[in-house]
Design a protein around this nucleic acid. Structure first.
Lengths: 246, 246
DNA sequence: GTCTATACACAGATAGAC
DNA sequence: GTCTATCTGTGTATAGAC
């Protein structure tokens, strides 16, 4: 699987998400016509991501948002009750989306090695397709209410749990060597996170997601795979060539 | 080298840094007596880190800072001209400190393998000793002026350059295998960064810096070391035992 | 559904007494 | 050097016309 293929199967583009936001919060918002609501939610989210990327959510004033969206203050407040609620909506929607995709990919295969590859790639590709959501979810978590912050932490643990499960399963089958699997999972996550936190760096150097994903996989497999599992690998040479293949 | 040893050689505790801040900005601040200035700068920085960790720098009001430091607004403004300048002072001091320590450790050895180990450890240990500075530098970079932001980016590139130099040098000596060294450097940095960004997670799991550092080293060495370099390693078993040794 | 106008709370910053 | 009191701009949010 590469990024292009991932994009085809996934429908993580804006419209679908905005529709979901509308349906989810239908009673809390004043706007009733789906078509206009979806259109404007998209406009609002895009603007929030743009402004927030530069100065953060707290520093974004509602007047900033008003002028970027070309909507009046009054109009904006038809879509959410308060600035705080706007934050919560975006955060919640981001998390739901991430969780859903990861679950899909977890159940797609049952060989631990393939599963690990698919999950690492799926997470990276998703963070590429929905970069603003990932960046926002991470950087603005501090502004959440304690309860909502709890959800963020539990998503972090959930995604690690999935990885740990795979690694344990693989160790039981003799495919992965004995390691501190929970810490390995954290390390994997740190590399995934770097992709969306430091995106400017990779853009500047013309590093593609596919290249990055294969590199991360090579690092992890070198560290985790047992000798027998290495035998099974399709790529003949474990050196630089292994990165191009897979 | 372990964390305890690092702490002895380093004097990265608060007092020294605050004194440096005082000397550096002596003309811009109203307070003239070094002793009171240093004492209060420490109080101010500690308070900023504490408040900022929870809600971010923008969300911290000067009144928040005033009550946390038990100093009045008027007194606070004797130590910096504006809130923006306070941000700049902290950011600049943080960067200077990081840069200085890394340089020290770079020049401490000339064997590439040892050098790489020392640098990775030094960076991790420093981020542990001066965690609030690291966290702040990363999370509040967005609020900087374009010029100051340029400095942040150039520090990121500088630290990567050091790693790349070591990896290239090691490849020339047949100790590291051929890789995309710049990308390896990014990956190393992502793991280092996770240590201070997700510190709550590691605290919760009772993971020590020493344990984490050795784990990261194992990951990287597995990926980079050439067969001959592995021969040379002190640790006999490359499995879990390798993590305890080194 | 969207606009303009406005309320009113709170931000950063300073003046001047002590 | 530090305090209190206060100025002025900007923040979020809403009311009511269209």
């Amino acid at each position: 699987m590469n990024y292009r293929e991932f994009q085809k199967t996934m429908n993580s583009s804006g419209e679908a998400i905005c529709k979901e936001v509308f349906l989810e919060n239908q009673d809390a918002i004043r706007i009733k016509k789906e078509k206009t609501a979806v259109k404007n939610f998209k406009k609002i989210f895009d603007a929030v991501f743009q402004i927030t990327y530069e100065k953060g959510f707290q520093a974004m004033s509602m007047r900033d948002l008003s002028s970027k969206t070309a909507m009046s203050m009054g109009a904006l407040y038809g879509y959410f009750k308060s600035k705080e609620e706007l934050l919560a909506i975006i955060q919640k929607q981001g998390r739901t989306m991430i969780q859903r995709v990861l679950e899909t990919f977890f159940h797609e295969s049952d060989d631990p090695v393939t599963r690990l590859r698919h999950l690492i790639k799926a997470h990276l590709f998703l963070s590429e397709a929905a970069r603003p959501w990932f960046y926002f979810t991470f950087m603005e978590a501090r502004n959440l209410s304690p309860a909502a912050l709890e959800s963020v932490i539990s998503l972090e643990e959930y995604t690690e749990d999935i990885l740990v499960t795979i690694l344990e399963q693989g160790e039981a089958q003799g495919l992965f060597i004995q390691r501190d699997h929970r810490l390995t999972a954290s390390i994997i996550k740190s590399m995934q996170q770097d992709w969306y936190l430091k995106r400017w760096k990779y853009t500047k150097r013309d590093i593609s997601v596919d290249y990055y994903a294969d590199y991360v996989l090579e690092v992890i497999e070198r560290f985790c795979l047992s000798p027998e599992a290495i035998e099974r690998r399709t790529s003949p040479e474990p050196g630089q060539a292994g990165i191009i293949a897979s």
